[in-house]
């Protein structure tokens, strides 16, 4: 996983729980990199999960809540560095398609070694979207947090829920988005 995610997670923890919290988590998690992250370097995915797990334990959070909150928080940061074209998009369904077709393609140009999730669109009508989230990392709650923040930013009234989830014993993760 890219170092930038760890730095953003540190920023999130600092803002939410104070800088002592991050130091504390690192001391407990005892990660291989000693928490010395630089944005472009790659780190073991396990470090991320270990830090998030410690965060949950230390602050009485569920894994789902922590990832969701981090997803919501990181949305604005990601938008700030996203390609210009996607800033024009005003609806969630179109934006989610642009994640696959524009944003991830641009990311791969700069970071060819990045491992990115894939969205598989299963069904789409005017009001409903069924989309599979496919990633070896299984960060579906984190993704749900980002989608939630996206809907809020675009001022749409859309409900999001996972109707299938690998963490619930399903074979895949599927999001259902319904416009109210």
């Amino acid at each position: 996983m890219k170092g930038v995610i760890f730095l953003k997670l540190e920023e999130f923890v600092d803002e939410t729980f104070g800088d002592m919290a991050w130091d504390n988590i690192l001391n407990i998690a005892d990660v291989a990199s000693d928490g010395a992250y630089t944005s472009i370097a790659l780190y073991d995915d396990e470090e991320f999960f270990s830090i998030v797990k410690t965060l949950c334990e230390e602050h009485g959070l569920k894994m789902k809540e922590a990832q969701f909150a981090f997803g919501q928080w990181i949305h604005d940061k990601l938008i700030a560095i996203a390609p210009k074209d996607v800033h024009q998009i005003t609806d969630t369904f179109t934006f989610l398609r642009a994640v696959n077709d524009v944003i991830h393609i641009e990311v791969m140009k700069i970071h060819p070694d990045a491992i990115l999730p894939e969205f598989i669109f299963l069904e789409e009508t005017e009001t409903k979207l069924l989309m599979e989230y496919k990633s070896p990392r299984g960060l579906c709650y984190f993704c749900e947090g980002i989608i939630n923040a996206l809907i809020n930013r675009l001022h749409e009234n859309i409900s999001v829920r996972q109707i299938e989830c690998v963490h619930e014993g399903d074979a895949r993760c599927v999001f259902e988005l319904i416009k109210q």
Binding site: D19, D23, L26, D34, G35, A36, Y37, T38, I40
Partner: peptide
């Protein structure tokens, strides 16, 4: 004292990160 120790660790981490970044 705790805070100073935390900041010291933070400085160590950041120094190490900077060295890594420079190598990179």
């Amino acid at each position: 004292e705790k805070r100073i120790a935390m900041l010291e660790r933070k400085v160590v981490r950041q120094t190490k990160a900077r060295e890594q970044a420079e190598q990179q």
